[in-house]
Design a protein around this nucleic acid. Structure first.
Lengths: 131, 131
DNA sequence: GCTGGCGTTGACGTCGGGGGGAAGGTCTAC
DNA sequence: GTAGACCTTCCCCCCGACGTCAACGCCAGC
C-alpha cells in the first residue's frame, strides 16, 4: 500500500503521515521507485495514533503505544509504558477539569456581579440598532 | 510612571506591555526623551487585561473591557460588549468541560480495559530494572 | 568620563501539528 | 506521446503570547 491509500484508509493526509515519519513514529520500506510501501500493521499503527490524538494526546505521548505495537504486541496499550501514559493523561485531565471548573465559577460570578451592577446592559443591547 | 514600573506593579513584563501596545490595547503618551509615560488608569487597564488572561481569555477578548475602561466607565465589565464576552466564554467553558469530561471517561475506560486484559503490567513495571 | 541600569525599535525564535506549494520523478491509460 | 494522478524532497507559513537578542539612546552616580 502506498502513502495515499494509507492516508485515506486511516482518515488522514499524506502530509501528516510524512510528518509522523519525520518524528520517528512511522517507518516505511521503499519500493523500487522510491515510493513508501506500507502494510496492514502500519494501518493499525496509524489508527492507534489517530485515536490517541483524538483524545488530545500529544504526538510524543503516542510513542509508547507505537513502540508497543512495533514490538509485536496485539494492542498499543498492552505495555506498561502505555498504561503509564493513560494514567498520566488521566491525572492531567482531572487537573484541567478542576482548574477549568474553578475558572468557570469565577467567570460566572463576575458575570452575575456585573449584571447586577448594571442591569440595563441587556436592554441597551436588545434595543441597539443592529444593522 | 515608566514602562518598567508599570510592568512591575501590574505583575508582568515590559515586553508584554509593548506587545499590548502593538496590538492596540494599550496606548502611552511619550515623555520628552521618547520614553513611554503611564498613569494610574493604565495600571487598572493592564490589571484588567491580566485578570482576564488568567481566566484564559484570548487577548482579543479583552478588548471590549479595555474600550469600556477607556470610555470612562468605572469597571471594564460595565458595558454590554464585555458582558457578551463573559457569556460567550462561559458557554465555551461549559462546552470545553463537557468535551474534556467525555474524553476523561473514555481514557479511564481504555485504562480499565487494558489493565484488565494485561494485569501483569504493573508487576513488570515494578520489577523492571530502572537504572 | 565611565559604568550600569533604564529605555527605544526591530527582527527572529518558540511550541505543535501539520498546510501549501514548487520542482521534479513515475506510472497508467488512452 | 501525452495527460493526469500519484509520488519524491525541500522549504516556508500558520496560530498566540510573548522571550530573546542586537544595537543603540538617555540619565544618574561616582
Amino acid at each position: 500500500m502506498r502513502i495515499g491509500e494509507l492516508a485515506e484508509r486511516a482518515g488522514t493526509t499524506t502530509r501528516t503521515l510524512r510528518y509522523y515519519e519525520a518524528r520517528g513514529l512511522l517507518t516505511a520500506r521503499r519500493a523500487g521507485n522510491g515510493y513508501r510501501a506500507y502494510g496492514e500493521a502500519d494501518l493499525h499503527l496509524v489508527r492507534q495514533i489517530r485515536l490517541l490524538q483524538d483524545f488530545g494526546f500529544e504526538l510524543e505521548d503516542t510513542r509508547p503505544f507505537v513502540e508497543c505495537l512495533q514490538a509485536g504486541h496485539p494492542a498499543g496499550d498492552s505495555c506498561a509504558a502505555s498504561l503509564d501514559v493513560y494514567r498520566r493523561k488521566l491525572a492531567e485531565l482531572d487537573d484541567c477539569l478542576a482548574r477549568l471548573g474553578a475558572v468557570r465559577e469565577q467567570v460566572a460570578a463576575q458575570l452575575a456581579r456585573a449584571e447586577q451592577a448594571n442591569p440595563r446592559c441587556e436592554l441597551t443591547l436588545t434595543e441597539g440598532t443592529v444593522s
